[in-house]
């Protein structure tokens, strides 16, 4: 039997710090915190892609992780696959003004930003574990 994996789709937005943090957190969960349990996909490929990409949310329970309340990853998943298992929106989780700041490049990130990415990563892990426990 194939072990269940959870799909994590991050918006990776380019305008706000939130986009950078969701991207960093998603990578950390994949590589370090829950290796092998989480799969991801380039969101633009999912949006612009064909049938195979659109199947993503049908093949895996998906957590949409968005940098701000425009919720692009969630909207895309609902639009193309019809179902989102869970969502994380950074402006609801952390200080809105900080999340919507223009610090986006990895060059500008300071320890406090990595600490915020860690908070997001543990939130993703919590939701991944909940989904895996349900399966």
């Amino acid at each position: 039997m194939t072990e269940t994996q959870v799909g994590v789709l991050s918006c990776s937005g380019e305008e706000f710090l939130g986009g950078t943090l969701v991207r960093l957190a998603t990578r950390k969960v994949m590589e370090e915190l829950r290796p092998g349990k989480v799969v991801t996909l380039c969101l633009p490929l999912y949006i612009a892609g064909g049938e195979e990409e659109r199947e993503f949310a049908k093949n895996y329970p998906v957590i949409a992780v968005d940098g701000c309340d425009k919720c692009c990853a969630k909207v895309a998943t609902l639009k193309y696959s019809g179902e989102v298992h869970d969502t994380i929106v950074l402006t609801e989780l952390l200080d809105r003004n900080v999340i919507l700041s223009k610090i986006v490049s990895a060059r500008e990130l300071r320890p406090e930003h990595y600490a915020m990415a860690d908070i997001v990563a543990s939130e993703i892990c919590k939701k991944v574990d909940e989904i895996l426990a349900e399966q």
Binding site: G13, I47, C72, V75, A106
Partner: peptide
């Protein structure tokens, strides 16, 4: 990651007066 960092270098440092970036996901889902 290279695309992201190269674009941010352009819009933040090399040509900030004449260029800007936008969230790709937002223009297609918004």
């Amino acid at each position: 990651l290279m695309t992201r960092e190269a674009v941010l270098e352009v819009t933040n440092h090399l040509a900030p007066e004449v260029s800007e970036t936008v969230c790709l996901a937002h223009i297609v889902t918004g």
